[in-house]
Amino acid sequence: MKIKVLIAAAALIFIAGIAGSIFVLCSPSKTIVNIKRDGEVLYSLDLSKEENRSFVIEYGDSSNTVEIKDGKIRVCAAECPDKTCVHTGWLKSSAMPIVCLPNHLIIEFADENSDIDALAE
């Protein structure tokens, strides 16, 4: 009896996971992008105004190269061991940031409100 309850719980977790994944993938993209490390904003960029360019963000001995092209942003090269941030590709969903855990680097779309605050400062 207990087993059945637990199997149902596992199935529920699985379904919740799928529903959450669909929600994340369907979140629309925005134009303001924040590049953060450990909760601190390093860069705040407006992709609709940025020219095509790439720049390097250093972290100790390691680094990530960020590329901006046609209003899109991605990490095109990294010195971290797993390269997850490079494989993530272009930043698409506002709910799913590009993450480089070894270098503590996060690239995500900013909320419109918090961005106004940043401009006012």
């Binding site: 596992a10 977790i13 699985f14 919740a16 996971g17 799928i18 529903a19 959450g20 994944s21 929600f23 994340v24 953060k36 450990d38 909760g39 969903s93 709910a95 799913m96 940031p97 993450v99 855990l101 503590h104 996060i106 995500e108």
Partner: peptide, 23 residues
């Protein structure tokens, strides 16, 4: 652990994928 280390709530977006892959 990732939330504590990076202090970024946005990481939560990966959690649903982790749930599916974990199952």
């Amino acid at each position: 652990a990732a939330l504590l280390v990076t202090q970024t709530l946005g990481l939560i977006a990966y959690y649903p994928f982790l749930l599916v892959s974990g199952c």
